[in-house]
């Protein structure tokens, strides 16, 4: 060990040492530097950061109370159009409520529901997957049968039925979406655990007599982080879209709370005369989901070395072809 480290310090030059120190001190800096190379991924990440900040500080940022109605200022267009009212940057909806303020508070609903569902469904699904993959045998067969059966359920219809019976509310959609989205984590985790159990290092740990809990914590969990992270991020997009759709149908977030989907539904009946009440909230949903997709795409490529190499090769090939043409 000593020999290696001393020979390494002999060889390394000062600038690279400083760089190395910086990297170990600031993984965030390295992360951002790596992210900056993929402009689309960076844009998506930046938008998401802004969105989270906007949701957290919505009460400070919002120019108006999102629920405050004004009969005099109904359906006023955005500030750059004729007939707009000052103070309402993106205009007002059919009840004279400020659209920008509603968007800021709507971000809270989207994030609250999606974070809760991903966390709940994720932890339940991961635990079931660990159990199935690690215990094997009857436990595995039982859990996976439940997963198989539930994956083949009529998803949205059953969700509608449950919501109709329980009664729509933010809590209801969190529960119902958790119920219908935990299986994917179980499948992924079980698959990885099954293949890991056959690797020499886990087999060795078992032979040596490590306790199951210790094996799971020390050997298996670390290997799950990267695939689970990508999966969870992609699941976010599904949940955000599902929340928006349910709220749009009137079965999700209920007034006086705000939600982007709810706002689109509200503006629907006036779309012949005013485009802005449905356009802006819809745009928010689309941009949020797009940002997550772009970021997830970058993450997937970055965490897989083979994928990075392939991507580089494709990029070079495309450049060489373009160079040839000109």
């Amino acid at each position: 060990m000593t020999i290696t480290s001393s020979s390494m310090s002999d060889r390394s030059t000062t600038p690279s040492m400083i760089q190395g120190a910086l990297m170990s001190v600031a993984p965030l800096g390295r992360f951002l530097k790596e992210l900056w190379r993929d402009k689309a991924g960076f844009t998506g990440f930046a938008f998401l950061v802004l969105l989270v900040l906007a949701a957290l500080f919505a009460p400070l940022l919002a120019p108006h109370d999102p629920a405050a109605q004004s009969v005099l200022a109904r359906l006023k267009p955005p500030i750059w159009m004729e007939g707009s009212v000052s103070g309402h940057l993106l205009g007002t909806d059919m009840l004279g409520r400020d659209i920008l303020s509603r968007l800021l508070f709507g971000a809270r609903s989207s994030l609250l529901v999606s974070v809760s569902v991903v966390a709940l469904a994720g932890s339940f699904g991961v635990m079931a997957g660990l159990l199935a993959g690690y215990k094997g045998g009857l436990t595995d067969a039982l859990i996976m049968r439940v997963v198989d059966v539930q994956v083949a359920f009529p998803g949205l219809l059953l969700t509608l039925l449950l919501v109709a019976v329980i009664g729509p509310s933010t809590a209801t959609i969190i529960i119902v979406l958790t119920f219908s989205n935990w299986m994917i984590y179980t499948r992924v985790v079980r698959g990885i655990v099954m293949s890991l159990r056959q690797t020499p290092f886990v087999e060795a740990a078992e032979v040596v007599g490590c306790k199951s809990a210790r094996i799971i914590l020390k050997h298996i969990l670390p290997n799950l982080i990267s695939p689970l992270l990508t999966l969870a991020i992609l699941e976010f997009t599904n949940i955000i879209l599902a929340e928006a759709a349910l709220s749009f149908l009137g079965l999700g977030v209920q007034p006086p709370a705000t939600s982007w989907g709810l706002d689109v539904a509200g503006g629907k009946n006036y779309m012949m005369i005013a485009w802005w009440p449905i356009t802006f909230p819809g745009l928010c949903i689309a941009m949020t989901v797009l940002s997550i997709n772009l970021f997830a795409n970058w993450l997937r490529v970055t965490t897989e070395p083979a994928e990075r190499e392939k991507r580089y090769a494709r990029g070079r090939a495309a450049k060489m072809r373009r160079a040839k043409k000109t």
């Binding site: 749009f248 689109v264 949903i285 989901v289």
Partner: peptide, 18 residues
Amino acid sequence: SLTGLSVPQFWLGLLLIM
């Protein structure tokens, strides 16, 4: 494709109608 994956269906429908 990325845009198509990101646009909520109900909103797309309304935009098309509009």
